[in-house]
């Protein structure tokens, strides 16, 4: 319904008088997002330009090959190709081993009849989540030292030769994945345990009357109840298969295992911030961001095709 002009203006004035403070509040976080999230996006163009310290980003000259020079250089850089492989490999192993672990633990905790013991187990198992990767690396270095670390002392006493858990590429990958499980398995059960509380207890009672065993209950009631949560989290994990953690490989890696610990995020740090090759590192970063978004959208579409809710 069209209002006369003066009435419309009066309602606009009223609206502003009522809500101006909301805009004032919102202006601070919005400024934050523009300055620290959107303006950096304008700097992405240096991936296509030759970096110059004296010029503004907008004025820098286009790189050779129509600006694609640094992408070509990245893909002919062995370190980068290894970083892509390692990122993919470590994330894939995390997915295969680290993803099911909390589901299994949640099922176990759910079956545990001793309530106080259950709560105690949860408290202890959540704790490693709050330790930084630096601290975990400190713990691991002491625990796994080949000469006098706890694990190797025990191995030696049992008559085995010591294992260089953190200093040999193959063992390092194993340790990396294992420490990831150690840090997050307990914490990640929280989501599943919360989903379990939404399952109608009458289903279990009915199943018990029908004589269903423990495995049948898990198979036909608990797991279907967890399915939406599992699918949502699986999409997120699949979407992040080429995104890389920084703290974890930085903290756990060393020069002996560089061939497996070098991932995209550490490559960007080493080449860009330490090596000052800004254009190359920005090109690599852009490649990663774009691939991540594409993967996330693909995983989401896949989930929707299978009749799940998806993440957006």
């Amino acid at each position: 319904m069209a209002l006369p002009f003066s009435a419309r203006r009066r309602s606009a004035v009223n609206y502003l008088r009522k809500y101006w403070s909301l805009y004032a509040m919102l202006s601070i976080p919005l400024a934050y997002f523009i300055i620290f999230r959107y303006i950096p996006m304008t700097y992405i163009q240096i991936a296509f330009k030759r970096y110059s310290i004296v010029q503004n980003v907008w004025d820098m000259p286009l790189a050779r090959n129509n600006g694609l020079e640094y992408f070509i250089r990245a893909f002919s850089n062995r370190d980068f190709l290894y970083a892509v492989r390692n990122t993919f490999m470590l994330n894939f192993l995390d997915l295969v081993i680290g993803f099911p672990a909390p589901i299994i633990l949640a099922l176990l905790l759910n079956e545990l009849p001793y309530k106080r013991f259950k709560r105690f187990t949860q408290s202890v198992a959540y704790m490693p989540h709050f330790l930084s990767w630096i601290i975990i690396s400190g713990l691991a270095v002491q625990l796994f030292t080949p000469t006098n670390g706890l694990f190797n002392i025990v191995l030696k006493r049992l008559g085995f030769s010591p294992i260089p858990f953190l200093n040999h590429p193959t063992y390092w990958v194993f340790t990396y994945v294992l420490l990831g499980v150690w840090k997050n398995v307990g914490w990640n059960t929280i989501i599943y345990l919360a989903a379990l509380t939404n399952i109608n207890p009458e289903l279990y009672e009915a199943a018990a009357i029908d004589g269903a065993g423990r495995f049948q209950r898990i198979r036909y009631i608990t797991l279907p109840g967890l399915k939406p949560t599992i699918v949502t989290l699986l999409i997120l994990s699949l979407g992040h298969i080429l995104s890389s953690e920084f703290d974890r490989p930085m903290a756990l890696g060393n020069s002996l295992v560089h061939s497996v610990s070098n991932v995209i995020a550490t490559f960007v740090y080493t080449y860009g911030i330490r090596g000052l090759q800004f254009s190359l590192a920005a090109a690599v970063g852009l490649f990663q961001s774009v691939v991540c978004v594409v993967f996330l959208m693909a995983a989401n579409a896949l989930a929707k095709r299978f009749g799940e809710r998806g993440i957006w």
């Binding site: 959107y38 996006m41 960007v268 860009g272 920005a282 970063g285």
Partner: peptide, 22 residues
């Protein structure tokens, strides 16, 4: 609009180097 602007930053990140240069 504000919601979209804010949520978008969750999925797309400019990356380390652009932040560093800013």
């Amino acid at each position: 609009l504000f919601n979209t602007l804010i949520l978008f930053t969750m999925y797309f990140n400019a990356g380390t180097i652009p932040h560093y240069l800013l």
